[in-house]
Simulated assay, not measured.
Amino acid sequence: MSNVKFKPQGICQIKEGIYDTNQGLLNVDGKQYFPDDLSLDVPVNGTVYGTLLNYKGEYKQLETSMTEDPYKAPPKAPILYIKPINTHIGYGESIPLPEGVGEVSVGAALGIVVSKTAKRIRKENALDYVDGYTIINDISIPHESLYRPAYKEKARDGFCPIGPWILQRDAIENPNELGIRVYINGELRQENTTSNLIRSVEQLFEEVTDFMTLYEGDILLVGVPENAPIAKENDHIKIEIDQVGILANKIIKEKAAVGGDIG
């Protein structure tokens, strides 16, 4: 049993509940619910920062290209990008597939929610700045950019499902040993673990806050594993992270997501 914070659709305030990891049930005010029984909104309101090249397998796959033009050398610091607010959607909401795009890549990521202003912190006390953990689906149109993430491919409307809740920090003893699995239409399509991170959660916090300040409510993604699964229209995506829960969304055509043609 673990304490979580979540946000129901149409309600401004954050609510609290208890998540039963064994049964996948959320206990709220003495009643039990499966996530699919609830209408859940995005449980965070800060800036979402993604991190590139932080999984060993991803780094190894791209290592050769790092020494070629235009890069010519591997990166020495974390490579960050932003998933802006237009990309944020909650559990169960539909991911819009843009017109002319046939498929997207699924980026399963552990999201670290910041509890207070973090500037030049040390890895030894980094977890003191963590409010909790959530799941992020860093949806992208497949592309090859490394050092300069392609915003046209990564910052589309609805390209960042978040949720279903924020799991309290103390519920997880070690965030660097969490299994991550991606299912598409019920089929296991990717499996990895945060033990394969190049920079641990603590080390990533130290290096990022050395050059920029993180604020309460911001979310730092630890990275996306290599070999991101590909999803298409009408696919059901589930990302499962040990102890944190499951984030589920479906892909539909963009026009259907906004109600079709007008006029």
Score class of each variant (00 low, 15 high):
V244A: 07
V201K: 13
P98C: 00
V4N: 00
P96S: 01
P96Y: 06
P164C: 09
A118K: 04
Y215S: 09
E93G: 02
N234F: 04
T134Q: 07
N27D: 13
N249A: 07
M66Q: 06
A256P: 00
E144H: 12
G92N: 00
D210W: 10
A150G: 04
V224E: 09
T193S: 15
F6L: 08
H236K: 14
E206C: 04
D170A: 10
E173F: 08
G260Q: 07
E99H: 05
K152D: 11
S65E: 14
G107A: 09
E233N: 15
G158T: 02
L110M: 12
V130C: 06
E16A: 10
N137E: 01
G17T: 08
H88F: 06
L167Y: 01
L80H: 02
E103I: 04
L247Q: 04
S2F: 10
Q32G: 02
V201E: 11
S145M: 12
V48M: 06
G158M: 05
S140N: 11
G158V: 02
K232M: 12
L38F: 07
A155V: 09
K83C: 02
T87C: 15
D170W: 01
I246E: 13
A108F: 02
P70I: 10
N22P: 00
G179N: 14
L40V: 05
L53R: 08
S115K: 14
R148K: 14
M66N: 04
K232T: 14
R199T: 05
E233K: 14
I141L: 08
V42A: 01
D69A: 15
S195D: 14
L178R: 02
D157S: 05
E99I: 08
A248H: 09
V48K: 04
N45S: 15
R169W: 03
F205D: 06
L97F: 00
E93R: 07
K15G: 00
D29A: 12
L220C: 07
I262N: 00
L197Y: 08
D69F: 15
L221H: 05
A228N: 11
G186M: 02
S39E: 12
T67S: 14
C12P: 00
L214H: 04
I180Y: 05
N234A: 07
I172N: 06
A228H: 03
E254R: 10
A248D: 11
S200H: 10
I79E: 08
R169I: 00
D170N: 14
G100K: 00
